[in-house]
């Protein structure tokens, strides 16, 4: 094989290699405050580092994307039950440890304020400003009985399935599951 051909073959191979893009793909699976804080801090930090960031919300994670101000009707019994049992939005999620019937979470929020740590509200705003994309798992939404109409207004929000995550993850230099 001549040199030119070999070079072309090599170029094609390099382009096919996974993890080449300066990009972070993150799965937000958990539904707890501490984990959502970690996810958002990493996401905004990565955006600051010049990385393209895509967050995939699935399972318990999707509850944090509910907008408490939006009301939707027409749900069946199970969906209503799930809707009632699961936290209505990011300000209703609690710590995974030391929640202590609300006392621990309240104390943590107070401490964060005192120490000037950005709240989830602030982090979502920054993430939106920096172009962090949020993609919501359609299947989880359906399973929990959430409707699109009750999801927060966020500038770069979209709905998708597992293939979208995998396609993004494959080309990302960093992948995380939280």
């Amino acid at each position: 094989m001549d040199f030119e051909q070999e070079l072309q073959a090599l170029k094609a191979k390099v382009e096919e290699m996974p993890g080449q893009e300066n990009k972070l793909s993150m799965i937000v699976f958990s539904g707890e405050l501490d984990k959502h804080l970690a996810a958002m801090i990493i996401a905004t930090g990565a955006a600051a580092m010049g990385m393209k960031v895509v967050m995939f919300y699935t399972f318990w994670g999707t509850a944090a994307l509910r907008d408490p101000k939006k009301k939707v009707g027409g749900k069946d019994f199970m969906s209503k039950m799930f809707g009632f049992m699961l936290p209505k939005g990011r300000n209703k999620i609690v710590l995974s440890k030391m929640h202590m019937a609300g006392m621990g979470t309240a104390m943590m929020k107070g401490l964060m304020k005192k120490k000037n740590v950005a709240s989830l509200d602030q982090l979502y705003e920054i993430a939106g400003m920096m172009g962090v994309e949020i993609k919501v798992c359609e299947m989880s939404m359906d399973l929990m009985g959430f409707k699109r109409e009750e999801i927060i207004d966020y500038p770069h929000l979209d709905f998708c399935g597992v293939a979208t995550f995998l396609a993004n993850a494959k080309e990302s230099a960093v992948q995380l599951f939280i």
Binding site: A47, A48, A118, I126
Partner: peptide
């Protein structure tokens, strides 16, 4: 605190 300094810097 983290991550605000680098967020603001960027």
């Amino acid at each position: 605190p983290c991550p605000m300094p680098i967020v603001k810097m960027s």
